[in-house]
């Protein structure tokens, strides 16, 4: 009985809470905000790689990234890329360098540019490009994100590239678990392919610096992908346990509960014909509706 009364006091407008559910009063909302922040802090704490409770690994296959890249190219009427294990090695080195020096950028804090990894593995390029993605839970989402960005899409569909290399590395980046996809595009300096003439305005060699762009891994002949050339991805446990998904579910529950209480407030107050000074509930419901829409839209992962 006491419990029912307490729940009613928190969620339903009545005399005991001055005809406004406690949870949507300023004091209740401040308490809710404090609890929410504490929960977020707990997620952060437990997702720390050193604690390792919420750590997760995404199921990203470089082979799949290459396949999807070539699929997009074929759809756009551009020739597919050849998988290059040399470029994949360069992509792997770039990914490891990012983890080791803890940066998320095309150029490292010490000024190391993407192109130096091409040179490191002995790939003398005429054209080169790089796309980066992190924390996507599947390769399709990463490729879709690149396609949604004009500069990354340009790299992905550029006819001047002939080779592709992709690496997926996992580790601690900025204090959190990260899965990084490095996609490198290139055309060798000594190659005289017909595609080069298409991008004649951008003839580059190792002395010239191409512009950084997003990068996945290249695959062998695109359509007939040779899986032996591409590293296989580590099967991964749970997308559900990723900090992103935990935060999103918790956020959705919080906002939906608030929205339901606001809607119930409008109905009950109108029925009881209570007059009280208050902010506009409709404005809050619209605001929370927008947040719910965004929470449903937002996807894990970012590109560079």
């Amino acid at each position: 009985m006491k419990l029912a009364h307490a729940i009613g006091h928190i969620f339903v407008p009545r005399t005991s809470n001055n005809h406004k559910a406690k949870i949507i009063q300023s004091s209740g909302l401040l308490l809710l905000l404090t609890l929410y922040l504490s929960f977020q802090f707990a997620i952060q704490l437990f997702s720390n790689p050193n604690v390792g409770v919420l750590g997760y690994a995404a199921n990203i296959s470089p082979t799949e990234v290459v396949r999807l890249t070539n699929e997009k190219r074929l759809e756009a009427g551009v020739g597919s890329l050849q998988y290059s294990d040399v470029l994949s090695e360069a992509a792997h080195q770039k990914g490891e360098d990012m983890l080791e020096h803890d940066y998320w950028a095309h150029v490292s804090p010490s000024g190391v540019e993407p192109w130096s990894f091409f040179v490191n593995v002995g790939y003398k390029y005429r054209y080169a490009g790089e796309n980066l993605a992190r924390d996507f839970t599947n390769p399709q989402a990463a490729v879709d994100a690149w396609m949604a960005s004009a500069t990354h899409k340009e790299n992905l569909l550029s006819p001047k590239y002939q080779d592709i290399g992709v690496a997926v590395v996992e580790g601690d980046l900025g204090g959190a678990d990260a899965t990084i996809i490095v996609q490198l595009f290139g055309t060798k300096a000594d190659s005289v392919a017909s595609t080069i003439s298409v991008a004649s305005a951008q003839t580059l060699n190792n002395e010239q610096t191409p512009s950084p762009s997003p990068e996945p891994v290249v695959e062998k002949p695109a359509v007939e992908s040779d899986s032996s050339l591409v590293p296989t991805s580590v099967p991964s446990p749970s997308e559900v346990e990723s900090p992103f998904n935990v935060a999103r579910v918790m956020s959705l529950i919080t906002v939906i509960v608030l929205m339901v209480v606001f809607i119930a407030d409008i109905i009950i107050i109108k029925r009881k014909n209570v007059v009280r000074p208050s902010s506009r509930i409709f404005a809050h419901i619209s605001f929370l509706g927008m947040i719910i829409a965004i929470l449903l839209i937002v996807k894990a992962g970012s590109i560079l």
């Binding site: 935060a247 919080t254 605001f287 947040i291 894990a300 992962g301 970012s302």
Partner: peptide, 29 residues
């Protein structure tokens, strides 16, 4: 003509809750 401190506070707190929720997810994307 019905602006009061309590009403102002409600908008601030609702906005703070909304912003915190959004940032908690965006910063993990």
């Amino acid at each position: 003509h019905d602006l009061s401190f309590e009403i102002m506070l409600e908008y601030f707190v609702i906005s703070a809750v909304g912003l915190t929720v959004l940032l908690s997810v965006i910063l993990r994307t």
